[in-house]
Design a binder for these strands. Sequence first.
DNA 1: CGGCATCCTATGAGATACTG
DNA 2: CAGTATCTCATAGGATGCCG
Lengths: 134, 134
Amino acid sequence: MRQDAVTSTPRSLDPRQACPIDPVVDIIFSRWTTPILWTLNSRGRLRFVELKREISTITSKVLTERLRQLERDGLVIRTYHREIPPRVEYEISDLGRTLAPLFATLAEWASVNWEQVEKARATYEAANSAPSVR
Amino acid sequence: MRQDAVTSTPRSLDPRQACPIDPVVDIIFSRWTTPILWTLNSRGRLRFVELKREISTITSKVLTERLRQLERDGLVIRTYHREIPPRVEYEISDLGRTLAPLFATLAEWASVNWEQVEKARATYEAANSAPSVR
DNA sequence: CGGCATCCTATGAGATACTG
DNA sequence: CAGTATCTCATAGGATGCCG
């Protein structure tokens, strides 16, 4: 199915092969995964409810789905305690922790360039108000 | 009738507080943007059709939408040539180019850790086949 | 060629209700 | 508590057609 994602030959006949990092983006930056990973990374091991409270707007259904994916991909570790009431804890895995520098880079990029993005938007919006040749 | 055609649905309203990098992720890693930016960064200035050919599976509608968003956010530059037939070229902006190291980091992470992800998946799948306590 | 305008559907994801 | 199970709805995005 998927071959070497970081191949040197830039043949892009395949869907995603126009961009070698696409599969990675898919697992790391799919919806809700960033807040989840970020929270687990900064807050440490958390119970399901605690995690849910952190990411206030997420529903338990979606949170469960995302956690399953992250667990499946080895980025998050799930620990089930047979108790009454049941207790389940989630923590970031070693593999997941290797993403920290990446996230830091991203945060850094944001702090440096976000203003530029907003300026670009304002400019674009202004130019869009006036009828012009597209 | 026409609303803001370039408004990207904010993937996060609240999660922003749980995850500071969420807005950035939204503009850089929303669907299709990675292949587009990657291609423009490596291939340089391209016409619409050329770009479309590179990212083979994308439809022109979606490509247009994504390009508008990227243009709006200042990551790509659109140049319109009044000719017959019309010629439109897209290139990555200086701001967009600042993403290169980030993408490189991502590619590096992939080359190092992707195997681990696949192993985790295999393990998970295997464990899932056997009845176990969830 | 580089798009919009339409139409249409598959999927994501919210709301709600219910269990071990 | 930590989920499932449904249901519904919005929307991302594909297919098609037309036009300057």
